[in-house]
C-alpha cells in the first residue's frame, strides 16, 4: 500500500479532516498556479477548484475513484485542468454566426425567437426535473451544458472508462428527462408512443404495429407532435 493510497483511505475515513487539509493546502496552490499560468481571475479559479473538489467527492462516493496514482491534490489538479480547458474554450468561443448566438435556420428567425422565449418560460420548471434525475445524470448535464466539457473531458473528470460511456449515460439522462416531462404534460397514448420509442427502442414500424397506427409515417408525425407539445 503506497502513501497515495493511504491518503485516499484517510479521506474516506474522515472526509471532514481531508476536506480541511485540501482547502488549507491544495486550494491556494491551485489558485496560485491558475493565476500564474492562465488568464483567469481568482474568483473563477475558486469556482473551478470547488467544482473539481465536488467531482472528486462524487467519484469517491460512487466508487469511481478507488486508487490514486499521485496525491489527492495531484488528482484535483488533473480534474481542475480539464475544467480550466473547457472554461477557456467557453470564453474564447468562435463567433461563427457573427453575433455569438446558437445556430438558427436561415429564414427561420421566428423559430429561434420562439425557442428563446419558450426556453425562458420552461427552464424554471425543467431544472426541477433535472434535480429529480439524480446522479450521475445531474452532474453530466451540468458539465455538458453549463461548463462546456466534451464527452472525453467528462470521462476524465468523472472517472468513466471512455467518452462512449459518457455519451450513452448522457443520452439516457436526456431520454429520462424527456419522459419525466412527457408524463406530466401528455395524454396516456402520446406518452406511450414516446416511451416505446425512447425507452424500449422500438422503431416507428414496430410502434405502429403494436399500437394500431396506419404505418410508421403516422407514428413519426405523432411523435414529432408530442415533442412539440412538451418542448
Amino acid at each position: 500500500m503506497n502513501g497515495a493510497h493511504d491518503e485516499l483511505a484517510d479521506f474516506r475515513r474522515d472526509p471532514n479532516r481531508g476536506s480541511k487539509a485540501i482547502n488549507d493546502h491544495c486550494r491556494p496552490k491551485f489558485i496560485r498556479w491558475g493565476l500564474e499560468n492562465h488568464s483567469i481571475n481568482g474568483a473563477d479559479l475558486e469556482d473551478l477548484f470547488q467544482n473539481a473538489f465536488l467531482l472528486m467527492m462524487h467519484n469517491i462516493q460512487e466508487g469511481r475513484l478507488t486508487e490514486l496514482t499521485g496525491t489527492l491534490c495531484t488528482y484535483l489538479f488533473g480534474v481542475g485542468k480539464n475544467l480550466i480547458r473547457a472554461f477557456l474554450r467557453r470564453h474564447r468561443r468562435t463567433d461563427w454566426l457573427g453575433e455569438n448566438t446558437p445556430p438558427e435556420s436561415p429564414g427561420n428567425v421566428q423559430v429561434a425567437a420562439d425557442i428563446s422565449l419558450m426556453s425562458r418560460q420552461t427552464s424554471d420548471n425543467l431544472w426541477k426535473d433535472v434535480e429529480a434525475l439524480g446522479e450521475p445524470g445531474r452532474s453530466l448535464l451540468i458539465l455538458t451544458y453549463k461548463e462546456g466539457l466534451s464527452a472525453q473531458e467528462i470521462a476524465d473528470v468523472m472517472g468513466y472508462a471512455s467518452a462512449e460511456v459518457v455519451r450513452q449515460l448522457h443520452k439516457r439522462a436526456r431520454r429520462d428527462l424527456l419522459l419525466l416531462k412527457a408524463k406530466k404534460v401528455l395524454d396516456k397514448q402520446s406518452y406511450q408512443i414516446l416511451f416505446l420509442f425512447y425507452k424500449k427502442n422500438l422503431s416507428d414500424d414496430e410502434i405502429a404495429e403494436q399500437m394500431g397506427f396506419s404505418g410508421p409515417e403516422e407514428v413519426k408525425d405523432r411523435r414529432l407532435e408530442c415533442l412539440e407539445q412538451i418542448r
Binding site: P102, I115, M118, S119, R120, T122, S123, D124, L126, W127, D129, V130, L141, I142, T144, Y145, K146, R174, L177, R231
Partner: peptide
C-alpha cells in the same frame, strides 16, 4: 437540448 442547457 437548448431547453436543458437553459435549465442547467
Amino acid at each position: 437540448q437548448q431547453q436543458i442547457a437553459t435549465a442547467t
